[in-house]
């Protein structure tokens, strides 16, 4: 059985007036995953999400969302949930009216019970106006609106940035419950790597408008190690496929490496990496990449949820 990708970009580019927001970007996000989209500000994360919804049109290359071309296919939008960076809600609308708006604009898909349930769990009064909601409550309402249309793909642009730690945790709990309920692919952009490590199982690192790292998080963490040892020439180390980053003092070398086998040389102490070390290691070396090998035919990916 093959699972089609939820999002496929091929040599995708978007040119703004004077510069490229995204350039020669190729990636694939398999269906059913919860994917972390990370990268420095200006790396093209928002541009990529807007291209995926059809809010922007590509200047170069192609993008496919749920097997369709965004912007060309009117049937696509109802299948996508999108939460924009600043969580725009009509300030004078009551929560009840926003849910009603969601119901009317998503005929046949709207899950009123889910929306109501989310509001109950977050203790949000339906008569409250959007303008009086806290940041955390606004995010909960926006997430409920996005989940209640039962999307197949949920795109969240920096949903955590404006939230305090407690509101962030509550938001992620709600998002994970939503992911259990619906068979939904989630793409979540954020700078908060420790939060992302908890909730995501797939990673895309964008840097300078290109894809720098893409793949299964567990696989990526398993394939990378930090080596420390006495300073010496590191041209060839058994078990190392590539040195991503190295730091040396006059006595010691510390290397972030991608492995292709066990590191057997006892001179090196071998340490596991967490998501933060991995991402920062690559972002510090913009020319290093970890990308899946190009595939001749799309084989789909292992998905179990």
């Amino acid at each position: 059985m093959t699972t089609p990708a939820a999002l496929t970009a091929t040599a995708l580019g978007k040119r703004y007036r004077g510069h490229w927001g995204l350039r020669d970007c190729s990636l694939e996000i398999p269906a059913g995953r919860i994917s972390a989209l990370v990268g420095p500000n200006g790396a093209g994360k928002t541009t990529l999400l807007h291209l995926a919804t059809g809010l922007l049109a590509p200047t170069a290359g192609t993008i496919e969302t749920l097997g369709r071309t965004p912007g060309e296919d009117p049937d696509l939008l109802p299948r996508i949930g999108f939460m924009a960076q600043d969580v725009p809600l009509y300030r004078s609308f009551r929560v009840r009216e926003m849910l009603e708006f969601g119901r009317r604009t998503n005929p046949g898909r709207w899950d009123a019970e889910l929306a109501q349930g989310r509001m109950d769990r977050a203790s949000i009064d339906l008569d409250q106006r959007a303008g009086t909601l806290s940041g955390g409550q606004r995010a909960q309402v926006a997430l409920a609106l996005a989940l209640a249309k039962r999307p197949e793909l949920l795109l969240l642009d920096e949903p955590l940035a404006a939230l305090d730690p407690l509101a962030r945790r509550e938001f992620l709990k709600a998002l994970m419950e939503g992911a259990v309920d619906g068979e939904v692919t989630v793409v979540l952009s954020s700078h908060l790597l420790t939060d992302l490590e908890r909730v995501c199982d797939h990673l895309v690192v964008l840097s300078g408008g290109r894809t720098q790292v893409a793949g299964d998080i567990e696989g990526l963490l398993e394939a990378h190690r930090v080596l420390t040892g006495p300073r010496r020439d590191v041209d060839r180390i058994e078990g190392v496929a590539a040195v991503v980053q190295q730091a040396t003092t006059d006595r010691q070398s510390t290397l972030l490496v991608r492995t292709d086998g066990p590191i057997i040389d006892p001179a090196w102490s071998v340490h596991r990496v967490d998501l933060e070390e991995l991402v920062l290691g690559y972002l510090g070396q913009p020319n290093a990449t970890a990308l899946p090998a190009p595939r001749l035919a799309r084989t789909g990916a292992e998905v179990s949820r």
Binding site: M176, E177, V180, V199, S304, R305
Partner: peptide, 17 residues
Amino acid sequence: TVKEVVGSLAINPNTVQ
């Protein structure tokens, strides 16, 4: 249940499974 765990810890459902 998986939903209860992810709802209390905010972790990926696949991890629990």
